[in-house]
Design a protein around this nucleic acid. Structure first.
Length: 775
DNA sequence: GGAGGCCTCGGAAGG
DNA sequence: CGAGGCCTCC
C-alpha cells in the first residue's frame, strides 16, 4: 500500500481511493476532511492523472493555500499545475481568457462590494429615487441574489413573481436598477464578485466550444465546503463535470451556516437526486475533541429535522464536562471569562493561543476585550477591515486600476480630484450626464472633452486634458516597467505620496505607512513573483519575465483576508462563531449564550432559520478540543439600553449528562462587581476616570467643548487675511494659540497651515477661520 | 473644501 | 451607545 494511505482510517481511505464517478464525502466536524481531500489529490497524481486535468474549488484563499501547501509536500512540484483556488479566483482566470466573447476586455476590473455599492448609490441618485427606500446595501443584496440564482436583469424584469415581490415591498424599481447597474458596469469594463460566477455560467451556457474546452480540461472536479455553495456555483460545477462526471463534493450539512449569503443547503441534501450513481462516504470518526464535547454536539444537532444521517464518534478520552458560567452583567461575564482563562492557563500550562473566545455578534467583543485588558491577558480580534479596503490603499490602487482599465468608473471617480486638481463635483456631474447621453464611459468623455458638449469651462477642460495625458502616460509604461517601478512612479507623480507625507497627524502618519507597506508588497511581488493567489495553469500563466502592475492588480483583486496570519504570537483569539469555522482550539469559551442573542431574535421567525442557528451552535461546540465553557449574562446593554436576558434555549438542548451544572457557582470574579444597572455610574465603568466623567445610563450628555475654552469676553476680531504671514503666532477661537507654518493660495482663497500645540496641524481657509495675530 | 453637529440605524461574511 | 452619512457653517 502506498505510504500515504497508511495514515488513513478505513472510511477515509475508501473516500480517497474512489476517484471515478460522482462521489459525495460527508465529513463530520474534526474528521480529517482536509486530509482526505489532500490525499485524494495526491493519490490521483500518483496514478498518472495529469494535474492540468484536476480542478479543486474552495471558498477561501486560506483553504486553497493550505491545501496546495500540503499537496506539494506530498506530491512535489507537479502539484503547482493543479487548478486549485477559490470559485472566484478560478473563474476570474477563466474570464481573463474568455470574457472578450461577452464583450468585456480581458483587463476587466473586479469591483469589490464598496465599489459596487458606491455605484448603486450614484445610480439611485441619478434616477431621482429615494435612497432611504433604495438603500445601496439592500439593492446590492437583491442584485447579488438575483445573479446567484442566475437571473439576468432581463429575466428578473420578466419574472412576475420577482417583480411582484418588489412591488409589494414598495420597491418597484429594483429591476430597473439592476439593468442600469449591469450596463454601467459593462461600460466600465467591470465585474462584481457575482458577475465572476454569472458570466462564467453564461459562457458555458451559450458557447459550446468554451463548454467543451473546459469540460475536457477539468476531467476531475472537487468541491470543498459543498454545503456553502449557492445555486450558480452548483450549476457551473455541474456543467463542467457533465462530460466525465468525475465530481467529488465534500462537506457537512451540519455545518451549513451561510444561507444568509445565498448558500443553498439543498445542494448537498439533494445531491443524490442529481447523481443516481453517487457513491457516498461518511467520515464519522472525530479526532479533535473529547467524548463529552462530541456527544454534547451530537445531542444538540439531533434537534434539527433536515439532515443527512450520520453519527460522529470519537476514540478520545471522556474529558471534562461542559462548564457554564453565569454573570450578572455582560461586564461581569467578561471578568469571569478572563479570570477563568487566567486560572486555566496557570493550572494546565496552556499557551494563550490555545484559547478562543467565540461570540455570535461582533459587538460582544467589547466587554471581553475590556476584561482581558484589565487582567493583562494578550488577545487578538479576528475580522475587521482588510488592508486593501482602506481608503488610502484604495486611492492608490484606483490609479493603478485606471492605468490598466481607464474605463473603470469607480476608480476614476475616486481619484479624478484626489489629490486636488480642481475638477470638482459639478464638473463630474456634467461628465456623468454627458456619458449617459452619448452612451460612453466617463473616460471616453474625458478623452473627448473638447469635442463633446458638456458645458464645462475651458480652464477646467484644460485640467481634465492634463489628467487624461497623465493617465495615458501611465498606461504607456504598463508593459515596459516593472510593477514596482510604475507603482512608485504613479504614487509620486500624482502627488498622492506627498499629500499623505505632509499630514503629520497620527492618522496621517499611519496612512502614509500603509502606502509604504503597499509599495513594499509590490516590490516583493516584482522581485519574487509572490502571489496571494494559487498559481494558475500554464496556459493562463502570466508573463514571468516582467512582473507588471496589471498582473499585480489581478492577483490582489480577490484577496480579502485582512491580516496575514501570525500564528506565532501567543494571544487569546476573539472571533465570531462564523469566522471560527474550520479552526480548532484546546479551550473554547462560547459567550453570550442568551435568548435573542444566540439564537438571534431575527432567527426566531422560522424553523429553517432556527435550524441554521442551531448548526451555528454545533459549529461553535465542535471547535473545542479539550474543554468547552459556555457563558451568559443576566443583563446586558443593547444600543444604549439595559435589557435583561434569559439563558439560551440551546443550553437546555445539550444532554445534561455532558454538562457540569455545578460550575455556575464555582467561578467567581476576584472582586464582586455590581451589574451596571445597579451602579451609580456609567456603562463602561471599569476605569475610574470614566466613572467620574460619565453619569448614569439615562443621563443626557451635556455637550462639552472639545478643547479648553480660550479668551472669553470681548468679541473675537479676526486679522486681515493678507496680513497673516508664515512664522506668526496666531490665536484661533477654538484651537487656541498656534504658529503659522505655511500660507498657500491667493486672496481671497488664502489657506494657512497652523500648528496648535497639543492639537496638531490645522488647515484653515483664512476668509472663514478667524485668526488673531499675536506677534 | 472640511470639521463638527445632527440624525439614523443597528446580523453573521467570503470573494 | 457608537459608527457612519449628511448638512451646515466657517
Amino acid at each position: 500500500m502506498d505510504k500515504y494511505l497508511v495514515q488513513l482510517n478505513d472510511s477515509q481511505r475508501d473516500a480517497v481511493l474512489c476517484i471515478k464517478g460522482p462521489v459525495m464525502i460527508i465529513a463530520g466536524a474534526g474528521s480529517g476532511k482536509t486530509r482526505v481531500l489532500v490525499h485524494r489529490i495526491v493519490h490521483m497524481l500518483h496514478h498518472g492523472i495529469d494535474p492540468f486535468n484536476i480542478l479543486s474549488l474552495t471558498f477561501t484563499n486560506k483553504a486553497a493555500r493550505e491545501m496546495k501547501k500540503r499537496i506539494s509536500l506530498e506530491a512535489g512540484d507537479e502539484s503547482r499545475n493543479l487548478w486549485m483556488g477559490t470559485f472566484h479566483s478560478v473563474f476570474a482566470k477563466l474570464l481573463r481568457v474568455e470574457a472578450p466573447r461577452l464583450g468585456y476586455p480581458s483587463s476587466f476590473t473586479i469591483y469589490d462590494t464598496d465599489d459596487a455599492k458606491n455605484l448603486i448609490k450614484d445610480i439611485v441618485k441619478d434616477q431621482g429615487l429615494d435612497d432611504k427606500i433604495y438603500k445601496p446595501g439592500l439593492v446590492y443584496n437583491r442584485i447579488s441574489s438575483a445573479k446567484n440564482n442566475l437571473y439576468s436583469w432581463k429575466e428578473y424584469q420578466d419574472n412576475p413573481e420577482l417583480v411582484n415581490d418588489d412591488k409589494t415591498a414598495g420597491k418597484p424599481h429594483l429591476g430597473l436598477l439592476y439593468e442600469i447597474y449591469q450596463k454601467r458596469n459593462f461600460k466600465s469594463g467591470a465585474m462584481d464578485f457575482d458577475d465572476l460566477l454569472f458570466n462564467t455560467y453564461i459562457l458555458l451556457r451559450d458557447f459550446p466550444d468554451i463548454l467543451h474546452k473546459y469540460q475536457n480540461k477539468f476531467k476531475y472536479v472537487l468541491v470543498d465546503e459543498f454545503q456553502d455553495t449557492n445555486y450558480a456555483q452548483y450549476i457551473i460545477v455541474k456543467k463542467l463535470a457533465a462530460q466525465h462526471e468525475n465530481i467529488c463534493v465534500v462537506g457537512d450539512d451540519a455545518q451549513s451556516i451561510y444561507a444568509f449569503r445565498g448558500a443553498n443547503i439543498q445542494n448537498i441534501l439533494s445531491f443524490k437526486d442529481d447523481y443516481p450513481d453517487l457513491k457516498t462516504f461518511k467520515l464519522e470518526q472525530n479526532y479533535r475533541s473529547t467524548k463529552n464535547i462530541v456527544n454534547a454536539a451530537n445531542s444538540v444537532i439531533s434537534n434539527n429535522k433536515h439532515q443527512l444521517k450520520k453519527s460522529v464518534w470519537t476514540d478520545n478520552a471522556d474529558g471534562e464536562l461542559i462548564r457554564i458560567i453565569k454573570g450578572l452583567s455582560d461586564n461581569e461575564e467578561g471578568n469571569m471569562v478572563a479570570n477563568s482563562i487566567f486560572e486555566e492557563k496557570l493550572q494546565n500550562q496552556l499557551h494563550y493561543k490555545d484559547i478562543a473566545i467565540l461570540y455570535r455578534t461582533n459587538a460582544q467583543s467589547r466587554s471581553m476585550e475590556e476584561a482581558l485588558r484589565r487582567k493583562g491577558i494578550p488577545y487578538r480580534i479576528y475580522g475587521g477591515v482588510s488592508f486593501y479596503a482602506r481608503k488610502e490603499i484604495k486611492d492608490l490602487l484606483s490609479y493603478f486600476r485606471l492605468t490598466v482599465n481607464p474605463n473603470d468608473e469607480e476608480a476614476l471617480k475616486r481619484v479624478i480630484n484626489y489629490p486636488k486638481r480642481e475638477i470638482g463635483k459639478t464638473t463630474l456631474d456634467k461628465i456623468i450626464v454627458a456619458a449617459d447621453q452619448e452612451n460612453l464611459s466617463l473616460w471616453n468623455v474625458l478623452e473627448k472633452i473638447n469635442s463633446i458638449e458638456t458645458g464645462i469651462n475651458a480652464p477646467t477642460r484644460a485640467r481634465i486634458s492634463d489628467f487624461v495625458i497623465m493617465i495615458k502616460s501611465f498606461t504607456a509604461q504598463l508593459k515596459t516597467k516593472t510593477a514596482f517601478d510604475l507603482a512608485s512612479h504613479i504614487a509620486m507623480s500624482t502627488g498622492l505620496l506627498k499629500e499623505l507625507y505632509a499630514d503629520k497627524s497620527p492618522e496621517g502618519i499611519s496612512h502614509y505607512e500603509n502606502l509604504q507597506e503597499l509599495l513594499n508588497g509590490i516590490k516583493e511581488f516584482t522581485d519574487k513573483g509572490t502571489t496571494a493567489l494559487p498559481a494558475p495553469s500554464a496556459e493562463l500563466e502570466a508573463d514571468v519575465t516582467l512582473r507588471t502592475l496589471d498582473v499585480f492588480l489581478q492577483d490582489i483583486a480577490l484577496v480579502t483576508d485582512g491580516e496575514t496570519d501570525e500564528k506565532n504570537e501567543d494571544t487569546v483569539s476573539l472571533m465570531t462563531i462564523h469566522s471560527s469555522k474550520g479552526l480548532e482550539f484546546k479551550y473554547v469559551y462560547l459567550v453570550g449564550m442568551e435568548e435573542n442573542l444566540f439564537p438571534s431574535q431575527m432567527a426566531l421567525q422560522s424553523r429553517v432559520e432556527l435550524e441554521e442557528e442551531r448548526r451555528l451552535f454545533y459549529v461553535a461546540i465542535t471547535r473545542a478540543e479539550i474543554r468547552l465553557t459556555l457563558s451568559y449574562a443576566l443583563s446586558r446593554y443593547k444600543w444604549g439600553n439595559l435589557i435583561s436576558c434569559e439563558p439560551s434555549r440551546f443550553i437546555t438542548e445539550i444532554n445534561p449528562d455532558y454538562l457540569d451544572d455545578q460550575t455556575a457557582v464555582t467561578i467567581r470574579p476576584n472582586s464582586f462587581e455590581k451589574p451596571r444597572n445597579w451602579s451609580d455610574f456609567g456603562k463602561h465603568n471599569s476605569k475610574p476616570e470614566v466613572v467620574v466623567a460619565t453619569p448614569g445610563p439615562n443621563f443626557k450628555k451635556i455637550p462639552k467643548p472639545r478643547f479648553a475654552a480660550v479668551s472669553e469676553g470681548a468679541p473675537f476680531e479676526a486679522a486681515d487675511p493678507n496680513q497673516t504671514e508664515v512664522g506668526m503666532d496666531v490665536e484661533h477661537q477654538k484651537f487656541g494659540t498656534g504658529k503659522v507654518v505655511t500660507i498657500e493660495g491667493n486672496f481671497p482663497e488664502l489657506k494657512a497651515t497652523v500648528t496648535f500645540p497639543g492639537i496638531g496641524n490645522k488647515h484653515l481657509l483664512l476668509k472663514y477661520a478667524k485668526l488673531r495675530i499675536i506677534k
